[in-house]
Amino acid sequence: MRTMGGFYLLLHRLMGRSRAFSGTGSVWSIWAGNGRGGVLNAATGGHTGPFDAELARKLKLGSWAERHGLVGDDGRPLQMMVTRIKKTVEVRTAKQVGGHLPSVRVTNTADTSFTHYLRTDPFVAEWAADVLTEAITDAEENARAVVVRLGGGSAAAVPDQVREQAAGGELDTLACACTDIEHAPGGGRCRQSFLACFGCPNALVMERHLPALLALAEALRGDLQRRDAAQWTARYGATWQILTRDILPRFSPAQRAAAQERQPHLMLDLLEAPAQW
Rank of each mutant, 00 (worst) to 15 (best):
T115V: 06
V97S: 07
T107N: 10
C197D: 03
T120E: 09
Y117V: 00
T109Q: 01
Y117I: 00
A94I: 01
P159I: 08
V148T: 14
A175Q: 06
A143K: 04
K95S: 08
A196E: 14
L150T: 05
V89A: 14
S113I: 01
L118S: 01
V124H: 01
G169R: 02
C178N: 09
C178H: 05
T137G: 03
Q161D: 15
S103F: 09
G169Q: 04
D111L: 11
E170L: 05
T112S: 06
D121Q: 00
V158D: 04
A175L: 11
A94N: 08
D111S: 06
F194A: 13
A125L: 08
D138A: 10
G169S: 06
E126L: 08
A196S: 15
E134R: 14
T115H: 04
S113E: 13
T107P: 00
L101P: 05
Q192G: 14
L195H: 12
R149P: 07
T173A: 13
H116F: 13
T109D: 07
T93M: 12
D160Y: 04
H116W: 05
Q161T: 14
V146D: 02
R119W: 00
R92M: 12
V162P: 01
A145F: 06
G168C: 05
A110W: 02
S154V: 07
Q192F: 14
D172C: 02
S154L: 06
E182M: 14
N142D: 10
T133K: 08
V106L: 07
I136C: 04
L132D: 11
C176L: 13
H100R: 08
G186V: 14
T112P: 00
Q161W: 07
Q165C: 07
P122R: 00
L174F: 10
E126W: 01
A139T: 08
T93V: 13
T112Q: 03
V158S: 05
P185T: 12
E182R: 13
L195Q: 14
S154H: 12
V124Q: 03
R149T: 07
G169P: 04
G188C: 10
G186L: 14
I181N: 13
P122G: 02
W127G: 02
R189M: 13
L118A: 05
P185Y: 12
A175P: 06
V124S: 03
G98L: 09
C197M: 07
L118Q: 02
I181K: 14
S113W: 01
A145P: 10
G169A: 08
S193I: 12
A175I: 09
E134H: 11
L150C: 10
E140M: 11
V97E: 08
